[in-house]
Amino acid sequence: MKKLLERRETSVFLILAVLCIGLTIYSPTFFSYTNIKNVLVSNTALGIMAAGMTFILITAGIDVSVASQMMFSATWLALLSETPFGNPVTLVLAAILIGFVTGAINGFLISRFDIHPIIITLGTNSIYRGIILVMTNGRWLMNLPKYFTAFSKTVFGIPLPVVYAVLIFLVSAWLLKHTYFGRSIYAMGGNREAARYAGVNLKKTIFFTYTYTGVLCGLAGLVLDSILGNCQPSGSNGWEMNVIAAAVIGGTNILGGYGTIGGTVIGVLMMGVIENGLVVAHVPTYWQKLVYGLIIIVTVTIDVLRKKKADSKKQMIEID
């Protein structure tokens, strides 16, 4: 119990709980099946990308191209569905393949040349986005076929996108906790040099991390398209910051070495609930961005202050 309280995720979870309770009291519809379903479904793409971002942040890296990678995949998939080759199987395969390629390019450039990931991904961010805009001339790809939107059906009251997200979270958590790959990631983020001496292949680990995130972005593109039923290549601009914020709010250390998928899920829910809550709580339009920023600042501040306190306690114990 005490251990649970000490975890970084706990404070964010408590803030989230307080927010939810407050919103429910203010507007009971907040806690309705439809609203919960809506919050979950509209944040699946964000959540899937945030799972990948958690891996990257743990290695002390960063990827600001995730939104572009997602739209890159979403656009190609929408184009594919306009051709006779489009069917559910090819869509999934293509989503994985496209994500693999975009992620592998990031991973290759970062690991091969040992350049700070923010630089490489800043560059690929504009390249991926530029390619799809040049290709489509900004045209929206409307009316995706039925088999495409079927990916986001609701079965037995459970929306499928949420199922995909949960599956991806489980796989990611397993990868992080129970595989050599996952342990290498933590080791690398904790102390790069030490990890290297311990025999971790840094280049390989980095390459895999970014490629895995790329694949998740590819799948996020598929989910996003199927939810919306059409594709807007210029859309979801600036989502990369939401993805990073979600992971960090969930307790992942942006300087590397710490982070869990569970925490990230809480972070994603936090972002989703704030967005939803701002409207549900009837916050005046012009104040929404301000309140949004404020909540993030406060959440992170509480988190950091708690950690500081815990750290100083630990130090005192060590001295004793």
């Binding site: 960063i62 910051m241 990073i244 914020a245 960090v248 250390n253 942006i254 300087l255 012009y286 104040w287 929404q288 961005k289 301000l290 309140v291 949004y292 920023g293 404020l294 993030i296 600042i297 992170v300 501040t301 950091v304 202050l305 500081k308």
Partner: peptide
């Protein structure tokens, strides 16, 4: 946020980014 509280700069300024934009929107009403 960065120097006193010790929030990583990327995250602290991500929060203030939205906060300042929000303030500008409130002041100008868009």
């Amino acid at each position: 946020l960065v120097a006193v509280i010790g929030i990583p700069p990327m995250i602290a300024t991500l929060g203030t980014q939205m906060f300042f934009y929000g303030a500008a929107l409130v002041l100008s009403k868009g």
